[in-house]
Nucleic acid binder design. Sequence first.
DNA 1: TTGTAGGCGTTATCAA
DNA 2: TTGATAACGCCTACAA
Lengths: 326, 326
Amino acid sequence: MSPSTVSQYVNKRFHYMGKETKKKVAEAIEELGFQPNTVARSLKQKKTLTIGVIISNIMHRYSTVVSRSIEDYCYNYEYHTIICNADDNPEKERKYVDMLLAKQIDGLIIVPTNHNRELYQSLIHRNIPVVFLDRYVNGLAIPTVVVDNQDVTEQAINHWIEAGHTRISLISAPMNVSTRIERMEGYKRALQQASIPIQESYVHHVEMDDVQEVCRQMSQLTEPPTAILAASDLVLIEIIRYINRQGIQVPDDVALMVFDEVHLAEFHDPPITTINQPFYDMGQKAASLLMDLINKKEVENKKYLYEASINIRESSEAKLQNKGVL
Amino acid sequence: MSPSTVSQYVNKRFHYMGKETKKKVAEAIEELGFQPNTVARSLKQKKTLTIGVIISNIMHRYSTVVSRSIEDYCYNYEYHTIICNADDNPEKERKYVDMLLAKQIDGLIIVPTNHNRELYQSLIHRNIPVVFLDRYVNGLAIPTVVVDNQDVTEQAINHWIEAGHTRISLISAPMNVSTRIERMEGYKRALQQASIPIQESYVHHVEMDDVQEVCRQMSQLTEPPTAILAASDLVLIEIIRYINRQGIQVPDDVALMVFDEVHLAEFHDPPITTINQPFYDMGQKAASLLMDLINKKEVENKKYLYEASINIRESSEAKLQNKGVL
DNA sequence: TTGTAGGCGTTATCAA
DNA sequence: TTGATAACGCCTACAA
């Protein structure tokens, strides 16, 4: 009973295998509790059946959904996922990419920090199967699964404009990524089309620790905003902390809306309007695109656009007497 | 310039290496973009610098914290983590353990389903470094990082008893794991010491989908509970769904408390009392124990107990007129 | 101080 | 139908 025979058996290549041998191998495997060593196999086959996933920050709820979705998809293909937190830190992103490549992962799904263009290009150059998720990086031949942020932001702002709001604020994290930029575009476009001037003092891209300070500043304007769009669950939490402390009423004093479906939003008093992005579907799509790339199937290098939907709840609904005291 | 010289360089064994050679190797590496192949190295060294983490369900918030904590710890040791969702499914747990072992991971951190005793024993038998987290499995020589669930549950129930509650409900998922069992013990103990009879109809271990139904049933008792302890964030959400739909007031009609710190709790109206478990610390501890095991350091096979703390908020505070209408 | 040889566990190829 | 051999890329001895 030679190693190669066992290998045949393990890989279910029974074509020419004698019933007798088959049985003997089966018994031996059972008796010795033999388990093939994936590492050796990977070395030989140059395939690890493992993909790397680099997400921005697992503390964002959407990251949880995304990683879960990708893992679910991979489970059916006997693929493993190694999930890494880049923390929106380009250096960590680089380090993780290196580690993952050293580990010979078969492909990568990345929520890019957008500050490693050279790295991204080298991935293309080295023919590493890569899919980007949630954020688009200009001018790279990498398939990217994203939400149409501009469009949905425009809708959101329009919803408020139609209700009579003109002093609308947008607060997001400071990252220079496509999601933020597109949301800015959508925000501006909506205001411009309604001929509402864009006020610098209503738009902020700040660290989480500064969100409350920014709220305080806006509250001291002669015309504080009457509506705030929070760009993520983490931003929303900070805003609510401020609002609660100040005893500000939603939506009577200020209307609220937030990107991402979070439990907090649904059960808040009043319930908070959320912009729901189909991250589970997007994770599945990214995984499926990556599998196609790995299996040398044709994959179009384009944006795979998903529509977000606005789940209107009480927090965003205008009251005639909205005071905009923030 | 032979492979072994390069290997020396890569592994920083400069002892006897000529300045000249060193430089030449460095240049060549730079030029070719050479990266050592971890797979080959792992095969040779029988070390993958990777650990497996099997958690119950990443949709629980505490799982997010735990996996983040473990990853943070490993990052500093150049270790990778492969995180797997067993979904509280023993078969998935088995499959993942097998996959991870085939991948030759150096160690395992598991939130055990508790339904794979043979599997756990075989891990010990095969000398795989393993640490359990969050749940204790009886009679296994595996270091386990857990919260003192019985103690904190007893405290929680006592808090209500002292405030005059006697009709106290406990709702948890149906898993047969130590956390649930210990909480039951704590619950019973507190009631017994106060000579309050234990009512079957107040205690439920059910799937998430049945939580609302259980609430409905309790509301039709002649004496509905005046207080409910939810055993997880997911249970709480279902209870709140029911409560909101019925227009029930918290804590006027029923008092609430929940295991796990969730944003939902802090910002709910009224804010919900949480039982905070130090999962970040526990994750770090589990990772550190595992590293010790991997490095053959002495590790005590015992329960590493952590104290949970109760963050009292309005939802659990008794009103004299608490009607217990549920 | 550097280079050569053997082997880690698997599989592809080819010989028996 | 099964077995021997080489090779995957790296590392450790040991030889040069």
